[in-house]
Simulated assay, not measured.
Amino acid sequence: MHEQQLKRIREKLKILQSLDPEMDLFGAENHEYEMDPVWTTERIAVFEQNWKIRLPEDYRAFLLHIGSGGAGPYYGLERPDDGVYAVIGYDDELNAISDAFQFAEAWNWDYDWYDESKEEEEWDALDHEYLDPKWSAGLLRISDFGCGISMNLVLNGPCSGEIWTDDRANRNGIYPDHYWGNTDRLRFLEWYELWLDHSIGELHEE
């Protein structure tokens, strides 16, 4: 089903690596264009059973045929086992990835975060609520954008399979990813290939 797209992705990844021997592209020094080993169908099944989820088919195909992490957008692709945690870089709080993802449209709080009339305790309480992992339930983190921003794969609900950005760290909420100028919402393989196209074009311009 995804054979042709996976073939294109392999070819474009080789082209991108050949264009960037000095690893000048953002994030390249982190992933070094290396891919973590592919997963087997058995390992995917265990992961899904452990977390009571079903991974989107195109992401499953990527895990089976390209890799389970490594070269990818921003600081690279995270391994699924790392993407289950609520906070980037910390493995002490799990995200409720099997719970329902509750948004169909971009979400944020309409607050003036620079309002000086509130007391510090009020802001601390609002901040704690705003950053509560309940808002990111149903999301598997797949990439670290930097500055506390993460890229995520929606695992359930009407938006299942789409890539969404969690930018609460900068008070910008949670929303479908449109970073590369795409007007349509992207699924995993579309998002990954668009990164390749964008990166190859960027390096050709230099």
Rank of each mutant, 00 (worst) to 15 (best):
Q4D: 04
Q5I: 01
L6W: 00
R8T: 00
K12V: 00
P21K: 00
L25S: 00
F26R: 02
A28H: 01
M35W: 10
D36M: 05
D36A: 10
P37V: 06
T40D: 09
E42M: 03
R43K: 05
A45K: 14
W51H: 13
K52C: 13
E57Y: 04
E57R: 11
F62R: 03
S68M: 05
S68T: 05
A71D: 01
A71M: 12
Y74W: 14
D81M: 07
D81V: 07
V84D: 07
V87M: 03
V87E: 04
N95T: 13
A96S: 11
A96Y: 11
S98Q: 06
D99H: 13
N108P: 00
W109Q: 14
D115S: 04
E116F: 05
E121N: 07
D124L: 12
D127E: 15
P133A: 07
S136V: 10
L139M: 13
L139I: 03
I142N: 14
G146D: 13
I149H: 08
L155C: 11
P158M: 02
W164F: 09
R168C: 08
A169E: 11
D177Y: 01
T183I: 12
T183R: 15
D184Q: 14
L186D: 00
F188Q: 10
E190Y: 03
E193I: 12
D197N: 10
D197M: 03
H198D: 14
H204Y: 15
E205R: 01
